[in-house]
Amino acid sequence: MKKFATSFVFCLLMLFTLAQDTAETEMADLMRSNGKIYVVIAVMLTILLGLIFYLVRLDKKISRLEKDKH
């Protein structure tokens, strides 16, 4: 009986390891879901916000120039 129990436990363990092999390692997968479209969104947003940041700086510089003139 004891032998059977140990082998049963080992079988379970083996099943567990097998299951672990096949199962996907679950992570915080926001950036990797939906065919990684979020990565594209992140890249495009970075470019957009970079350009906007540049525009804002330019705007402020011109405002300063206009103040100096008057």
Binding site: N34, L45, L48, I52
Partner: peptide, 17 residues
């Protein structure tokens, strides 16, 4: 200008999702 930025961010995120 802020409205423009917000609308573009909206376009880039919701437009792709």
């Amino acid at each position: 200008k802020i409205l423009s930025v917000l609308l573009l961010v909206y376009t880039f995120t919701v437009g792709l999702m």
